[in-house]
């Protein structure tokens, strides 16, 4: 089973038709110029790559930029059309206080919606800001997952200082029952991310996107040249989740890159889907 843990439905044509502001925001705020695709084709793309489940992410940029990419309501519509394929992680602005908490209670049902995606560097907050803690606490209490952007971004609107992985340590330490996924393996702060994943049972890493070449080159650099196969097999096989950042980087290209790694088949299957299945709760509810 292949589960893509990191998909942004930002180029779905129907969303842009309903909210024309999204087209400008996609380019000028999110920093992505890409062809729009009908939802049906977006789904066909993922399925043609062999993806069985995809975690689609919301992003609330309304406080700074007046836009959501996309809104949770739009995510819900997409999921309702393809409930066998999509699982949602809602977007919210944790600095909006009760409104953010209400959004969690409204949407997260452990079926269609399993977690929250936060992007501190683009949303303009420090992840260790104690004003955000009520969000972490609620997520922990209801057994939801926190996916949080760490590492590099080409987007010059984002504040790289807020995406430093070690800023997550107080959260991982205080909310031990909260499963936390650090995106992009925190690249280029890979070892910092790995420190957290090794030290805290509740911290995981995703493989999303490529920064130093093609996906095949990038993942080889990370897993083989920087970390080493033996280390990956012994320490990280249960901690890494396949994520692509589709459509900024197509899901199929990251899958092919993971398959090309000289790691054992059990580790490969764990990264491609079994780890995600485990932290999402697995079983027939998935």
């Amino acid at each position: 089973m292949i589960i893509d843990f990191h998909v942004h439905p930002v180029n779905v044509e129907e969303l842009h038709r309903a909210s024309p502001d999204m087209t400008t925001a996609l380019r000028d705020v999110y920093g992505l110029r890409i062809g729009l695709q009908p939802l049906r084709v977006f789904v066909d793309q993922l399925r043609s790559f062999g993806v069985s489940k995809a975690v689609i992410l919301g992003l609330d940029l309304s406080r700074l930029y007046g836009v959501k990419l996309p809104s949770n309501e739009e995510l819900a519509k997409i999921i309702s059309e393809y409930p066998d394929l999509f699982i949602g992680f809602i977007g919210l602005d944790p600095l909006k206080g009760d409104e953010a908490l209400d959004e969690i209670e409204k949407y997260i049902d452990k079926r269609k919606f399993r977690g929250v995606k936060l992007h501190p560097s683009l949303q303009g907050f420090r992840p260790d800001d104690e004003r955000v803690y009520p969000v972490y606490e609620l997520l922990e209490n209801i057994g939801a997952i926190l996916m949080i952007h760490t590492g590099f971004s080409w987007n010059t609107r984002s504040n790289l200082g807020y995406s430093y992985p070690l800023l997550i340590e107080p959260i991982a330490s205080k909310f031990k029952g909260l499963k936390i996924v650090l995106t992009h393996m925190g690249w280029p702060w890979i070892w910092e991310s790995i420190c957290l994943a090794l030290r805290y049972e509740n911290v995981y890493l995703d493989t999303a996107d490529t920064f130093t070449g093609t996906p095949r080159e990038h993942l080889r650099r990370v897993f083989v040249e920087i970390l080493g196969v033996r280390f990956v097999e012994a320490f990280l096989r249960d901690k890494v989740l396949f994520g692509s950042n589709h459509p900024r980087m197509e899901s199929g290209k990251i899958i092919e890159a993971i398959r090309s790694l000289p790691i054992g088949s059990e580790s490969r299957e764990s990264i491609l889907g079994l780890n995600a299945l485990r932290i999402l709760g697995g079983g027939d509810t998935l």
Binding site: I34, W154, N155, T210, F211, P215
Partner: peptide, 11 residues
């Protein structure tokens, strides 16, 4: 390499 106009890696 990174293609700034598109905001993504060209691969």
């Amino acid at each position: 390499h990174f293609f700034r106009e598109d905001g993504r890696m060209a691969v």
